[in-house]
Design a protein around this nucleic acid. Structure first.
Lengths: 121, 121
DNA sequence: CAGCATCCGCCCGGATACTG
DNA sequence: CAGTATCCGGGCGGATGCTG
């Protein structure tokens, strides 16, 4: 895939935008860390410190729509809902860690560049 | 680098958010394609079809601040400004293409998942 | 417990007009 | 040519309150 082509670049941008939103990546990562790569709503809310119910819900719905997570409802009282990383979701971890490694390695350089830039105005 | 740690995950999220904005990735890619990995303002505006002057300016400033591109002003009339991919910016291309390849390979799966999801409501 | 509904402030990005 | 200045609408995401 070449990044430069208009149609494909649209797809790339669209998905980058999604992955770049405030919580999506962290959601996938946290789910990957969970035992069995499964967790329920309230567990995820604790893991994603600071996220609101509303935003966690929409983030989960988006991830479900894209096929990254699967939602399973248990007919119990009190209700229980579990979210699980799908095969597709797991396959995202590779590129994700790749990018995270790049960021980790180059973060000092970026931070230094910012400081230089900000000092000059 | 582990994605799960709070401080580092903040960094990852912050950079992912930036890379995920509407034009940043495309800017780096277009610049990478340009001869000498350099281009002037108006050339970039033509390459990034649909971008406004104002947004191209802020996108370039952000990329410059992070050290991805270098800005060079020529004391000429009419004025000429060229933007060039830095070493740091070039090193971004690896992870970027990696992610783009993943998206290209898995896009059909994602599109199918969306269609299924949307049909049920 | 796991949400949906509502309201709302903020910022991103587009449009337009002007300048060194 | 390469910006800056200003205005503005839409959407993201947080807070709160209510339900099956």
């Amino acid at each position: 895939m070449r990044l430069c082509e208009t149609e494909e670049s649209r797809v790339v941008r669209e998905l980058m935008g999604k992955l770049g939103d405030k919580w999506s990546v962290l959601l996938v990562v946290m789910l990957a860390k969970a035992p069995g790569q499964r967790a329920r709503f309230s567990e995820l809310q604790r893991m994603l410190t600071g996220i609101s119910q509303r935003v966690l819900t929409t983030t989960l719905r988006d991830a479900e729509r894209d096929g990254f997570v699967a939602r399973e409802v248990f007919a119990e009282v009190p209700p229980r809902v579990e979210y699980e990383l799908t095969e597709l979701g797991r396959s995202l971890l590779g590129p994700m860690e790749h990018l995270a490694r790049w960021i980790g390695e180059h973060w000092p350089t970026i931070a230094a560049a910012r400081e230089r830039f900000d000092r000059r105005g």
